[in-house]
Design a protein around this nucleic acid. Structure first.
Lengths: 332, 332
DNA sequence: TCATCCAATTGAAACCTTTCAATTGGATTC
DNA sequence: GAATCCAATTGAAAGGTTTCAATTGGATGA
């Protein structure tokens, strides 16, 4: 395969000139440039990025290691990252850890060795030592959609406590009093925060406490199971509204209720969380708490680029605000 | 930042030995190995993949350039690719062209320059010259979920004509006669093929031809619009079943119908296509034609790896078979 | 005509690793 | 005790690019 040397020989110029055509075209006379470009085409020259990078030390790629590529939430965050990346002429590589620690570690290692310009990651455990290790080994890292307790890394996340509060306040506004929280396990920080917010909102309004319908995961299937449990309650004790820890649960719950002949929102109002694309596309469009996904990605990418080339960079923990999107599932 | 040279000095061995510890550990005595490994930890040594790759010529990464990362179909294909990649100890980078030709080209260029071991791509236009150019410049390429007419590249796709046939045969079995096809534009090969299959199935059964409800895109929104059009038809001419070119259309259609008080499947049966996760999670679970997504990814990855290291590789066009998944939207 | 300047071009060094032929030195064999 | 062998280790070359100080040669000004 042809290299700069071959191109130089074929065009009758020196090796350095070929490099200039590639990197500093304005320094080369038009005639020479044309000759060199022709030679490149003729020989099918393809720049070797490894050698280029080895010598120059610079790389023009960012990477996002995501928790679950099948979850539309994360692909939307990725789209936000890409916006910033593209405007800075960076390429973005996405990697899917698929909730497996071994894969997360393997990808991070690979990316560090590859000397990418920066890594964005939504980690399985934001406290994990290997995250800080990445930064320590020399590659800028920003944690996305999680907030590590240690402030040794930059992070961008959304205020989930506030999100939970927004959800119940909306339900209170609509006149509901008996409100259920569907979600779990509480070991997931986000689930915990959203519940805390919900409780806070009810407390402040002097409303009765939530009934917690605990789930084992935040999936559609678990949402259906939760629906069965709600249907099993005696009518008098049945909540009039449910706040779900995410949209998948809400969709499962919705499916179960509609399938059993209950009306949404008349028999039970539902609020989800994340406002994924399919929330608005459901048979009964879902009210949901929207996180600024693109903004999340954009800010994270800006932080990682700043860390990469601003010597005075200091780590910061950015917290963005969620917003409630009201639809039929609570408005009727 | 520490390199092998520094590690060698610190451990009191030669540079070659450090390299052996990294690449041929069995050739190094345990004592030496330990010394070297300690030195690596102490100095925070991180292998430089660029230099490694430059010298060895080998890379352990594959890449998948996908059409739309937000579409669960493609992330499932990616998961299949990753299965194969992982078992061969490869990393997979995903890139999102987002239906933009300029981005597709930019990513392909970047990946070729990076000398990845192989590229999988679901292209915007499977006939585009730049695809063949990639292969020509030396990186193995496999086209996924599309079949280029020219047989100059490997490809793996699913038989969409058969899929369309399966859909209408199922509806005929359920006693439907007036069947609508919802989809478009016909410039999309997949839409065209599915319609061809549907027509074939009806012809063979001697049933009346489909009514085509043309859409401008295959989105939920367009599905809703199609729903309005169907509702606008006089009752006698209204179809009793609809076959949608994909699940997004089907979900939109479902939403519109349910919102207008029609019953699915009693007033209108619906068949979608792709069997995305949310098809089964809809309020009325959707009957859909399932493509073997993981298999698609796995086979494509196998092909690209074969092309990369089997000198006798010959290009092939693999066609997989779809399968119908019957759910409430046609069964009641 | 000579000195000066500037743009264009050159050539060698550097980037960091892997590879491989060559060397070392201890153990085995006769 | 010499010859042989083998595992462990070494050192230098190679891989393809970018960088940068140095050189060239034509144009400008005096």
């Amino acid at each position: 395969m042809a290299g700069v040397k071959d191109v130089a020989a074929h065009a009758g110029v020196s090796l350095g000139t070929v490099s200039n055509v590639l990197n500093q075209p304005h320094r080369v006379s038009p005639a020479t440039r044309r000759k060199v470009e022709e030679a490149m085409v003729e020989l099918g020259f393809v720049r070797n990025e490894a050698a280029r990078h080895l010598r120059s030390g610079r790389s023009r790629t960012l990477a996002y290691v995501m928790l679950d590529a099948a979850n539309p939430f994360f692909t939307d965050v990725a789209a936000g990252i890409e916006e910033t990346a593209e405007s800075g002429r960076f390429s973005l590589y996405m990697c899917n850890s698929d909730n497996r620690v071994d894969r997360e570690v393997a990808y991070l290692d690979h990316l560090v060795e590859q000397r990418v310009q920066g890594i964005l990651v939504t980690p399985i455990d934001p406290e994990a030592a290997h995250l800080a290790a990445v930064a320590h080994r020399g590659t800028p890292v920003v944690v996305v959609d999680r907030t590590p307790r240690e402030q040794a890394l930059c992070s961008v996340a959304v205020d989930d406590v506030l999100g939970g509060r927004l959800a119940v306040e909306h339900l209170l506004d609509r006149g509901h009093e008996r409100i259920a929280f569907v979600g779990g396990p509480e070991s997931i920080g986000q689930v915990r925060d959203r519940l805390v917010g919900a409780r806070g909102g009810l407390d402040d309004a002097g409303a009765p406490p939530v009934t917690v319908i605990a789930t084992e995961a935040t999936t559609v299937r678990e949402g259906r199971t939760a629906g069965e449990r709600i249907l099993g309650l005696p009518r008098a004790k049945r909540p009039t509204a449910a706040f779900c820890a995410n949209d998948l649960l809400a969709l499962g719950l919705l499916q179960q209720l509609v399938g059993s002949g209950l009306a949404v929102p008349d028999d039970l109002a539902i609020v989800g969380y994340d406002d994924i694309y399919f929330a608005g596309a459901a048979a009964v469009p879902l009210t949901s708490v929207r996180q600024p996904r693109h903004e999340l990605g954009r800010r994270a990418a800006q932080l990682v680029l700043d860390e990469a080339d601003n010597p005075e960079h200091s780590h910061q923990q950015v917290v963005l605000l969620p917003e409630l999107v009201a639809r039929t599932s609570t408005l009727g």
